[in-house]
Structures are given as C-alpha cells and as structure tokens.
Design a protein around this nucleic acid. Structure first.
Length: 229
DNA sequence: GCGACAG
DNA sequence: ATCTTGTCGC
C-alpha cells in the first residue's frame, strides 16, 4: 500500500489563490502529536534541484531505516516547473514534483523530513505542512535559513536549540545539528509535535549539518539533474 | 513607500 | 535554487 494523496487540488493557480488555499488547508493541520518513536521504522528525506535554463526540476526522496539509518529505497523524477519561486508559496512550486516521487515509493515512511519550513511560515502552512496534510503522513520541515521569526543563536554544541518566535509564538527551533555548524530551522509539518520534530531530526544526523535522509535526497536530485534524464 | 524574503 | 576560484580550517 503506497502513499496516495488523500486530498488533491490544483497547483497551477494565481499567487492570490495559492495563499487562500493555504489558509483553507491549514484547518486540516494536526500539530502537537508526539511521534511514537518505538513505531518509527522508516524515515524519508525529500529535496528538489533545478537546471538553469531548463523548464524542469528534479525531485528526489530517500528512505532510511530507523534508528539504524540503513538506506532502503530511493526514487527521483523530473517535473516541469509550473510556478515561480515566491517566498511563502514554495509548495506551489515544489510540492507537485515531490508528491509525484513520494507516491511512487514502494514503502511507506513513518515520517518525512522536508527541505523547507512547516508551520514556521507567514500563514503557518509551509511546504512540509502542505505535503503532510495532503498525504496524511507525519512531516517535519528542516530549513537552512529563516523565512519568518526571530531567534538567538543556540549554543555551539550539537543538540543545542533556541526557539524561533513569530508573532509571539514559538513556531520552530534553531537547532545545532553538529558542533559549530550553522543551525538548521526545524518546525512541525503535520501529525507531530515540535519536540519530536527536533528529536527525529537530530537522531537522523550523521557527520553533517543536514539529516542524512535529506542529504541523500539532495545528492540524488543532483545526480538526476546531471544525467538530465 | 521601504525592507524582508524557505528553495 | 543556480552561477563560480580560491581559501580558511580541521
């Protein structure tokens, strides 16, 4: 039984309509749910890469066993770019490609780590939340930079965190995944709580800043692009 | 109007 | 995201 979107909608819409869709879909969000780590056996990572003058984007997903982090499945695919990059509307650009690849997965990840934000978003509905709602699967947003909110630099040691606050609310955490590296910004996507999101992210990190599943997906999307398939 | 702004 | 050489640090 593969993952199928339980909710579908058009992605080729006006920016105005896109923002409205986010406001509507936000009602289906289920945050604050502790992740049952004992039942997590598969963790996936997802990312997208582009080719300058090409109309296509290359999405990739890599799945690892948890907590052993052994690779079990990878998938990638190219999709025509159908929406421009607009801060706050990233999902309308990349989600179509990611969903296309995710549904071709033979296995069903228990949680998906996505390159981008979850609720740490202007309307509380970033790409990680969007994909999490459409698929009904726990998701976590792991971004390399801030979209909204403020934070104080966390301690230098791996594992240190500092709240990312937006409109007086803690919408995410600046997490130091390795000693001395720049922090990544973790936020809830869907069907998970912030503490679990931070824990799963940290426990998936090897010797690099980004959690292993996302790194693998990032590399795979780059390989796919290089092959221009 | 000005600056900020995931990938 | 992508375009790019050298360069600082472990």
């Amino acid at each position: 039984m593969k993952m199928k979107p339980r909710i579908t909608h058009r992605f080729k819409v006006t920016p105005k309509a896109a923002a409205k869709l986010q406001e509507e879909l936000k009602c289906r969000l289920e945050t604050g749910r502790p992740l049952e780590f004992d039942e997590v056996g598969l963790v996936a990572g997802a990312d997208v890469s582009y080719l300058r003058g090409d109309e296509r984007m290359f999405a990739a997903v890599s799945v690892f066993t948890y907590p052993d982090m052994e690779p079990v499945e990878s998938r990638w695919g190219s999709t025509p770019v159908g929406f421009p990059y607009i801060p706050g509307l990233l999902a309308f650009r990349e989600a179509p490609a990611l969903l296309s690849v995710l549904r071709r997965l033979a296995c069903e990840p228990d949680v998906i780590l996505i390159d981008g934000h979850g609720v740490a978003h202007p309307r509380g509905f970033g790409i990680a939340s969007h994909i999490g709602v459409l698929l009904g699967v726990p998701t976590v947003g792991v971004a390399k930079s801030v979209l909204v909110g403020e934070y104080v630099m966390p301690a230098r040691r791996a594992g240190s965190r500092a709240p990312l606050v937006y409109n007086g609310e803690t919408v995410g955490l600046a997490v130091r995944t390795r000693d001395g590296v720049k922090p990544v910004f973790v936020s809830v996507g869907n069907l998970i709580d912030l503490e679990s999101a931070a824990r799963i992210t940290l426990s998936c990190c090897g010797r690099y800043r980004q959690p292993e599943p996302i790194r693998a997906a990032h590399r795979l999307s780059n390989v796919a692009r290089a092959g221009r398939a």
